[in-house]
Nucleic acid binder design. Sequence first.
DNA 1: TCGATATGCAACTATATGGTTGCAAATATA
DNA 2: TATATTTGCAACCATATAGTTGCATATCGA
Lengths: 107, 107
Amino acid sequence: MQDKITTILKAIADPTRREIFHALVVAATALPITQISNQFEISRQGITKHLKTLEDAGLVEINTKGRERFCYANTKPLAEINNWLAFYEKFWDTKINSLEQHLNKKG
Amino acid sequence: MQDKITTILKAIADPTRREIFHALVVAATALPITQISNQFEISRQGITKHLKTLEDAGLVEINTKGRERFCYANTKPLAEINNWLAFYEKFWDTKINSLEQHLNKKG
DNA sequence: TCGATATGCAACTATATGGTTGCAAATATA
DNA sequence: TATATTTGCAACCATATAGTTGCATATCGA
């Protein structure tokens, strides 16, 4: 389907998913789905879908115990983004505005 | 509409847009739209749409000169992502797997 | 002035996405 | 065992997204 970095970026590009992810990161413990969905306005099924997307990106891991499914955040895949950003960091302040360069050259 | 970080993340979540952005970053000079679209398989209008999305995120700035529109990359908005990531970096290696913690507690 | 080039706008299509509801199945508990 | 709880699956809906084509307009250069 799509590459790893795209999957990760799409997962966190949605504000609701970022909220879910954040809630899981700051939680001291793994949380079952219903308990997560209680913290949000949208339906449990909506939450489940978001969790699936986060799981596909490796940002959430889910472990079944009895009838419950405990979810916890895994922040490691975010390193991929950091990695992607690293290349462009070089340009953050040092790069001379290339348009101006261009226009100056041409007059 | 949506907040800044969401706009930026959505902009770079698309692989084609990341390619366009990359091409502009590594270009030594600002590039007119047609010249950019020559580097890609999709139509010029497709490229224009992507450029609009990147522009909305502040990742591309466009300057008209005559009949041409020169595009150049601005990497600075990426700092927002770096900022967002910073919080979670704390958890990258130090965090104890919270599910295991939880399960161990319960037996 | 006339033709070629660069672009924007609008309409359209197909598919992805974020969300919903209803229902069935599995597990826990009284 | 009967009931309540947690969940997954499937169908469905509305909107967003990625892409297309056609056409009009503005500018450049001969």
